[in-house]
């Protein structure tokens, strides 16, 4: 197992803030909007650097999506900022008609996704957003795993032509990817080469997969770990290449089992190379209040549950 370590923990939303500032420096057409959550979205540095390129929308997310769509006409590249719940479910029809169907170059930046939002509870913990967004034709869906990857993904999203859903989170998590990484939309990252099982993880579950891989190695199980940061379009070649070798898969994501990364993988397998698969995901339920760590443990989204899923899928080989 390749060794991964970290010296610092940071929230992925801060990676977004840093990426937005950098994207703004690189391209004067990058603009930002926020629905009364500047601090939560870490947009302060962008606003300080480019006050004339920021628009406060207030608590009116539907309007924010429409205004952002309109801003693209004339060449701007708008980033909308609010929590993932209010970035998707609340404004689904606005995104569908004014952004996706209209093919507008809007970047929907969605923070506090999933259970790790924590104490605010289920009203704010969206676990359906990946499914909602990936069902929209033409929408690119990205869920980075740490500060550095989120920063790189944000810069890449600004350079990419077309609508993007960029999903990140609230809690501080280890920084284990390279600071100067090149982020390629739609390209999987091979975290660890192995031969016994493929673990495909996205977002906060990538670090859990690494922790699981280390423990599995001690048990003599050689896990291949793939990070899918771009859920749509899916790097099908990378997944199929890996399972051709390992012949079984565990998917891992901070999302409902229905409609998430796991379902995309399962569909790919069914059409091309059916092998046993287990899901690490929330099992069709809402979340609840608690600390991020408590919630991830209770809902089965940690290294312990990944190890159990690997053992189960190996028995099904």
């Amino acid at each position: 197992m390749k060794k991964y370590s970290y010296t610092e923990k940071k929230d992925t939303r801060s990676g977004f803030g840093a990426g937005l500032l950098e994207a703004g420096k690189r391209n004067e057409n990058v603009v930002a909007l926020c629905a009364d959550l500047i601090g939560s979205l870490k947009m302060q540095d962008f606003i300080k650097a480019f006050p004339d390129r920021f628009t406060q929308v207030g608590i009116a997310e539907a309007n924010m999506i429409g205004v952002a769509a309109g801003m693209t006409i004339g060449g701007k590249i708008p980033f909308t900022g609010t929590f993932a719940n209010f970035s998707t479910g609340r404004v689904y029809d606005q995104i569908r008609q004014s952004i996706a169907y209209s093919n507008k170059n809007v970047k929907i930046a969605a923070s506090h996704a999933g259970l790790t939002l924590g104490e605010d509870g289920a009203t704010h913990q969206i676990l359906e957003d990946i499914g909602l967004m990936k069902m929209l034709p033409g929408m690119t869906v990205i869920n980075p795993c740490d500060y550095n990857q989120t920063k790189a993904a944000t810069i890449a999203a600004a350079e990419f032509e077309g609508p993007v859903y960029l999903r990140f989170g609230r809690p501080v998590v280890p920084i284990f990817t390279d600071a100067d990484q090149k982020f390629e939309i739609g390209k999987a990252w091979l975290v660890n080469e192995g031969k016994d099982v493929t673990i495909i993880a996205t977002g906060h579950l990538v670090w859990e997969a690494i922790k699981a891989g280390e423990q599995l190695a001690e048990m003599g199980i050689d896990a291949e770990i793939i990070n899918i940061h771009t859920i749509k379009p899916l790097d099908e070649a990378a997944v199929l290449k890996s399972i051709a070798k390992t012949r079984c898969v565990v998917s891992a994501e901070e999302h409902n089992r229905l409609g998430g990364l796991g379902d995309s993988i399962a569909q790919l397998l069914i059409k091309n190379d059916p092998v046993p698969m287990e899901y690490i995901a929330v099992d069709d339920s809402f979340g609840e209040s608690g600390t991020p760590e408590e919630l991830m443990k209770k809902y089965g989204l940690d290294d312990i549950h990944i190890i159990a899923a690997v053992k189960k899928v190996l028995q099904r080989k």
Binding site: V31, D52, R53, T55, A62, N63, M64, I65, G66, V67, A68, A69, G70, M71, T72, I73, G74, G75, K76, P78, D93, Q94, R96, Q97, S98, Y101, S102, K104
Partner: peptide, 22 residues
Amino acid sequence: MSSGSLGQGMSVAIGAAITKKR
């Protein structure tokens, strides 16, 4: 811009107007 699902055009037009100003 696509329209049909009602109530979205004003936001869109305002966004385009902001870009014209910028």
